[in-house]
Write a protein that binds this DNA or RNA. Structure first.
Lengths: 150, 150
DNA sequence: TTATTTCTGGCAGCATGTTGTCATTTATCG
DNA sequence: CGATAAATGACAACATGCTGCCAGAAATAA
């Protein structure tokens, strides 16, 4: 009996993992489509979002920690975005070498336009989904993240 | 009132999306760690899994459709795996150009070793998670996939 | 059957992510 | 304070993914 429970949970979970891979790809595609008109890609609005949500200011490794990525990957993205005038490296009083990454005026404009597209999208997608299911799913996802993030 | 509901669902959903990105990265890392000892990467065991689960045999574009990726991405992976002796291109009676991708004997061995690691992992991870939550989450994930996969 | 459309393989270019390494700065510990 | 450990930037190598393009095969429509 225990084995049966284990077995079905195992299959269920592996199915979930594969489905998450699939959904991840589709969400990236959605994000790219949405941010296309403002010259962004999913990797870039992830960075913009992380900065916009932080109050105290973030360094490159800080953004990487928030997004769960390598600092090198984030560094490459921010370097390009600084060149494009979206971001700005601001002297960090707390650290001589590691600058704070901030949104320029243009970057803030981009973020606002992004939200104008993203918000209706989020509302429309969740239209027919009970809030309880979203909560259950988010709780489970966070639980899994905790398990793996060490 | 409607706006409040929309607002909290919107925030909840965006939070979920970011968490899914995070979890995706962690699952890939888990997969890479697990399959490291048999010389696989996550991209490769996804392909092996797709082939192993198919009864009728799959072509490269067929694997791509199952995994929700571009056929070019899959083609590059399978080309390498054929070179490594894990996969084999078998003449397709139904299509002159598009070969069926099959596991070699070595490939089947690899798949079996993979399952020996993956199964206990799945059981251990879901140990303290109610099966109902897994089902709810999988249902929601599939629902989202349907929305975006067109 | 013939014309049109779709599918496929192969190639190229590019975006994104990872790990590894090295030198330097910052933080921590004895 | 001084030694050691951790964090950071910069660079390189590599794995994966995408789109675009072309020519030929296969499926479909007329």
């Amino acid at each position: 009996m225990v084995d049966i429970v284990h077995s079905s949970k195992r299959v269920l979970f592996l199915d979930l993992v594969l489905s998450l891979f699939r959904l991840n790809g589709l969400l990236i595609a959605e994000g790219d489509t949405m941010s296309d008109r403002m010259g962004l890609t999913h990797a870039r609005w992830k960075v913009i979002g992380a900065i916009a949500l932080s109050s105290a200011g973030l360094t490159v490794p800080g953004i990487a920690r928030v997004l769960g990525q390598s600092r090198q990957a984030v560094q490459r993205i921010t370097d390009v975005m600084v060149k494009d005038g979206i971001l700005h490296y601001q002297l960090n009083p707390k650290h001589k070498r590691s600058a704070l990454v901030t949104l320029t005026a243009q970057g803030k404009d981009v973020y606002n336009v992004l939200r104008e597209v993203q918000d209706p999208w989020a509302i429309q997608v969740t239209e027919d989904i009970p809030i309880e299911e979203l909560e259950t799913t988010l709780r489970l996802v966070r639980r899994l993240i905790k398990k793996f993030d060490k």
